[in-house]
């Protein structure tokens, strides 16, 4: 059966096993199916426009090289989470009772995390399994938009007032975003701060 997301019938939503590589018994997981579909899209693109497909492959190879350090960092952090942090501790800092401390960790973590957003999904899934709230995952992901090293570039194009105002709004709305996503996900009693 497909590793269906949605959390119905008591099954974990998102990836909790069997969705990536082939499942035991030789069945292809959802992740592999997705990869095969992506490859199929390239075959279609190549038939339609070989130049476009080759150009895309060249972009892909550059991206793979760029993403490797971030993936290595995420792999190391996932290992550290599994090795050093007890589930109860993660739940205390990022779970139901984390309060303002949890929000600060999620916001700070989102701002400081490097590399593309999708590189961080595996670690967030791991932290969620250990007790991290969905509202804090949403806040973390939203704050990935606040990139301190890129601020000078934004200032160059749009000026420092625009950059400052936009950054302040993004920080504030990351909390609102987390609250709304958390509320919609059923964290009604957990966001009192």
């Amino acid at each position: 059966m497909k590793a269906k997301a949605g959390g119905k019938e008591g099954r974990p939503e998102g990836m909790s096993g069997g969705a990536g590589m082939g499942k035991p018994g030789g069945r292809i997981g959802t992740g592999m199916k997705f990869l095969l579909v992506s490859c199929l899209v390239y075959v279609v693109a190549y038939v339609a426009s070989p130049e476009l497909a080759l150009s895309a492959i060249s972009v892909f190879l550059r991206m793979v090289v760029n993403i490797l350090p971030a993936l290595a960092l995420v792999l190391g952090m996932m290992f550290a989470v599994n090795l050093l942090l007890e589930p109860g501790k993660i739940a205390r800092y990022l779970g139901r009772e984390s309060g303002a401390k949890g929000w600060l960790i999620a916001i700070g973590g989102g701002i400081l995390s490097a590399g593309p957003i999708y590189a961080w999904y595996p670690m967030l899934a791991e932290l969620r399994k250990h007790g991290m709230k969905d509202s804090l995952i949403a806040a973390f992901l939203y704050n990935r938009a606040v990139k301190i090293p890129l601020i000078p570039i934004m200032v160059y194009y749009f000026g420092w007032i625009f950059t400052a105002i936009l950054t302040i709004y993004m920080l504030a709305f990351s909390v609102i975003n987390g609250f709304i996503v958390g509320f919609k996900r059923g964290e009604r009693n957990d966001n009192s701060g």
């Binding site: 969705a19 990536g20 992740g31 792999l75 899934a125 791991e126």
Partner: peptide
């Protein structure tokens, strides 16, 4: 866990 994510990434 990581190997399951690689095909998706």
């Amino acid at each position: 866990a990581f190997s399951q994510m690689i095909p998706i990434i």
